[in-house]
């Protein structure tokens, strides 16, 4: 087995185990920590695919940013306000059904898609290519995303403002 394959299977194992732990852990805070591990492992998969930029962004935004905010929410509600957050509920059957449907849908797509057997050759500096394409070819979706974020920001402000 090549080093790359070993790395992939190792990461896959960590990724699967930590993702399962996110759902199965009874302690909400532990779930978040497992989620952080899963997100870092995802960045590792990106690294194996030579997508360094994506890996770094994944860590910066998800493992660094999103996790921080989730933790913030948990602490404010569970420790400081003292409200117990429920980790489980009774809808196991419905949840299982939905998960199964999603699994089948994704599985079908993956089976149909032609998968390359080797990584495509990388030409030049990927980071530069990403930047160039974001501001030329894909500038419209890029700017639209910015508008969506702005709307989300305004929405948050609306909910957070003081009642008059």
């Amino acid at each position: 087995m090549s080093l790359e394959a070993a790395g992939f299977w190792g990461l896959a194992l960590v990724l699967l185990a930590s993702s399962l732990a996110v759902v199965l852990s009874k302690n909400l805070f532990h779930s978040v920590l497992y989620l952080a591990l899963a997100l870092v492992a995802t960045a590792g998969v990106f690294l194996l695919l030579h997508a360094e930029f994506l890996a770094a962004v994944q860590i910066l935004l998800y493992a660094g940013g999103v996790i921080t905010i989730v933790v913030f929410a948990i602490v404010v509600t569970e420790r400081l306000v003292g409200e117990r957050l429920n980790q489980t509920n009774r809808g196991v059957a419905a949840g299982g059904l939905v998960s199964l449907a999603v699994l089948i849908a994704i599985g079908l797509f993956v089976m149909r898609a032609p998968l390359p057997h080797a990584a495509p050759p990388v030409a030049g500096d990927l980071t530069e290519a990403i930047g160039r394409n974001l501001l030329t070819r894909y500038v419209l979706p890029f700017e639209l995303l910015a508008v969506v974020f702005l709307a989300a920001l305004l929405g948050a402000l609306f909910f957070a403002r003081k009642e008059e």
Binding site: V40, F53, I59, G65, T127
Partner: peptide, 13 residues
């Protein structure tokens, strides 16, 4: 190539 970004990302952990 992404040295600075790596630095910022890792230190945010």
């Amino acid at each position: 190539n992404i040295g600075l970004l790596f630095f910022l990302a890792v230190s945010s952990l």
